[in-house]
Amino acid sequence: DRYEFNINGVHFTIDDAEEELIKLIEELLKRGARAEEIEEVIRRWER
């Protein structure tokens, strides 16, 4: 599934997002994580 979200006006799209990654990102968003922090999480996840 495609997952899309915005952080401070920056648009992100993840194709074939796994449910666990989506939950992790949503938790980070609730905590007010910065875009750079979430980008790093996504990079690590994709390795």
Rank of each mutant, 00 (worst) to 15 (best):
45 W>I: 01
21 L>Q: 02
20 E>F: 05
21 L>F: 06
34 R>K: 13
12 F>R: 00
41 V>P: 00
34 R>D: 15
33 A>M: 05
27 E>S: 10
46 E>Q: 03
16 D>H: 15
16 D>R: 14
12 F>N: 01
28 L>A: 15
15 D>W: 10
19 E>M: 09
7 I>A: 11
11 H>F: 11
37 E>T: 07
26 E>G: 11
26 E>P: 00
38 I>Q: 00
25 I>Q: 00
22 I>W: 05
8 N>F: 06
2 R>V: 11
43 R>E: 13
31 R>V: 12
26 E>A: 10
38 I>K: 00
15 D>T: 10
14 I>W: 03
1 D>E: 14
18 E>N: 07
36 E>A: 10
35 A>I: 12
16 D>M: 13
36 E>Y: 06
5 F>C: 03
46 E>R: 04
15 D>N: 12
33 A>K: 04
7 I>R: 01
6 N>I: 11
46 E>W: 03
22 I>Y: 05
35 A>E: 06
35 A>S: 09
31 R>I: 13
6 N>F: 13
44 R>S: 15
9 G>N: 08
30 K>Q: 13
18 E>P: 14
34 R>A: 15
18 E>H: 10
28 L>I: 05
18 E>Q: 12
35 A>Q: 14
10 V>P: 01
29 L>K: 07
12 F>E: 01
23 K>R: 13
5 F>Q: 02
27 E>P: 06
30 K>H: 11
20 E>G: 13
46 E>K: 06
3 Y>L: 06
22 I>P: 01
25 I>G: 00
47 R>E: 15
11 H>A: 10
7 I>G: 02
47 R>F: 15
8 N>P: 03
40 E>G: 03
13 T>Q: 11
36 E>N: 06
24 L>P: 00
24 L>S: 07
10 V>S: 09
1 D>Q: 14
4 E>M: 04
34 R>Y: 10
14 I>T: 02
45 W>C: 01
28 L>G: 06
29 L>C: 04
24 L>I: 15
40 E>K: 04
43 R>C: 05
22 I>R: 08
45 W>Y: 09
23 K>W: 11
29 L>F: 06
21 L>P: 00
38 I>D: 00
13 T>N: 07
5 F>L: 08
16 D>W: 11
9 G>W: 01
17 A>F: 06
3 Y>Q: 03
35 A>F: 10
19 E>L: 11
3 Y>G: 04
14 I>E: 01
39 E>N: 08
16 D>E: 11
39 E>A: 13
10 V>D: 08
25 I>M: 03
46 E>C: 00
10 V>R: 06
11 H>C: 14
44 R>G: 14
30 K>P: 02
43 R>A: 14
11 H>S: 12
42 I>H: 01
46 E>A: 03
29 L>I: 13
36 E>M: 04
19 E>G: 10
41 V>C: 05
41 V>A: 14
36 E>K: 07
20 E>T: 09
16 D>A: 13
39 E>C: 04
18 E>T: 09
10 V>W: 08
40 E>W: 03
25 I>C: 01
26 E>Y: 06
41 V>H: 05
45 W>N: 01
44 R>N: 15
5 F>S: 03
19 E>R: 07
46 E>L: 09
38 I>H: 00
15 D>S: 09
33 A>G: 06
18 E>R: 05
15 D>R: 04
